[in-house]
């Protein structure tokens, strides 16, 4: 309630000018401010009569604290740069499922780095990601410790709704809102309170279209996008509009999307990318990979030069497949020559 005193004297009109986001706040809290611009907050709240308070289930005292809390939170949120200043993430060892100490040197991950995470199902990949998301301080089952920028993490990473450390992209995600691409992005941009909304939206659509095999129009309903287009939009939106500095990817399906470009887009926006995958093409795109077994981090492998060569071979193979996919889409016949041909525009 840092603002408590300052807020008291101000009129609604002045507050709205200073904090435009309050318009939606009043709306969502069912408070009518029409014709009440000259009142202060407490005067405004006192104009609501008993019946209305009862009907709308409002509590004046709680609302007063909420307004002030909300303004504090938004000021803090707006004052931060896009990435919330996470330049480096450090994982310190804890122990595995059987209680043995993990034996690795602190793992340092810098922004714009891609880290793959490998290990069989149930080996503890999710727990590692959860430790990062919760900024574990030897207080989770693994006893691991997470540092941000070499320091103990701020509490906000655990508890603030607008400062989540990790954004997630996974295989089974869908859009469930009945909106067009443009409306959808507007909504997200509004909730993030970005300036220059239109240019951000254009940028996202443009980037998404670069990732998707087939382009889509801003007026397409998000629920009518193909699987590839949906994933492309989700990735572009997460890269550009999400507040979270770390992006966790749980496999990216091959179909209809350029995965290399997708990763480049994410790291280009200075995200840290963590990727749980066993797809060699993706895993080798990582700078390093974390190997997990029995709930513990077994080792950290740096992608070797030989593996990088393998990666470029894999990319050629992938491009051949993409080329065939494209021909099929447009009703062409495949020939054995296609096996040798790389798809130049894929």
């Amino acid at each position: 309630m840092k603002n408590g005193k300052r807020l008291k004297a101000r009129k609604i009109s002045q507050l709205l000018e200073l904090y435009p986001f309050l318009t939606t706040f009043f709306e969502d809290n069912l408070i009518n401010i029409e014709g009440k611009a000259d009142l202060t907050i407490s005067e405004l709240l006192s104009t609501i009569d008993e019946d209305e308070l009862e009907d709308k289930a409002l509590d004046v005292e709680k609302l007063t604290t909420n307004i002030s809390d909300y303004i504090d939170q938004m000021i803090e949120f707006l004052g931060e740069d896009g990435n919330n200043g996470v330049a480096k993430l450090t994982i310190l060892p804890g122990r595995n499922k059987t209680g043995e100490d993990e034996n690795f040197d602190p793992i340092e991950i810098n922004k714009s780095e891609i880290i793959s995470i490998v290990g069989p199902t149930g080996s503890g990949k999710s727990r590692l990601l959860a430790d990062i998301e919760w900024t574990a301080q030897e207080d989770t089952p693994t006893m691991r410790k997470i540092l941000i920028n070499d320091e103990l993490p701020d509490k906000k990473w655990r508890f603030s709704s607008s400062n989540k450390l990790v954004a997630q992209l996974s295989q089974n995600m869908n859009f469930v809102m009945d909106l067009t691409v443009k409306e959808f992005l507007e909504l997200h941009a509004k909730s993030r309170m970005v300036e220059e909304e239109q240019s951000v939206i254009d940028k996202i659509i443009n980037e998404a279209n670069k990732l998707a095999g087939e382009k889509f129009d801003p007026d397409t309903p998000v629920t009518s996008l193909s699987g590839g287009q949906s994933r492309a939009l989700m990735i572009a939106d997460t890269a550009i509009l999400s507040s979270s500095p770390i992006v966790l990817i749980d496999e990216i399906e091959n179909a209809g999307i350029d995965r290399k470009k997708a990763l480049q887009l994410l790291v280009g926006e200075e995200k840290i990318v963590l990727m749980a995958t066993h797809d060699p093409l993706l895993a080798l795109m990582g700078d390093k990979r974390i190997v997990i077994n029995n709930g513990g981090i077994k080792k950290l492998i740096k992608t070797s030069d030989e593996e990088k060569d393998i990666l470029s071979g894999l990319e050629k193979m992938d491009s051949v497949v993409q080329g065939m996919r494209k021909k099929l889409r447009y009703g062409e016949l495949l020939s054995s020559e296609d096996l040798m041909k790389e798809n130049k525009n894929a």
Binding site: T24, F25, D28, N29, Y70, Q73, S161, S162, K164, A167, Q168, L169, S170, N172, M173, N174, F175, V176, M177, F184, L185, L187, H188, S191, R192, S230, M234, D237, T238, L241, S242, S243
Partner: peptide, 17 residues
């Protein structure tokens, strides 16, 4: 786990409001 990152962020911001 079944909705997009954007929808999660928007929903959480509405709850926060």
């Amino acid at each position: 786990d079944i909705v997009s990152q954007a929808e999660r962020e928007v929903f959480a911001s509405r709850v926060n409001m």
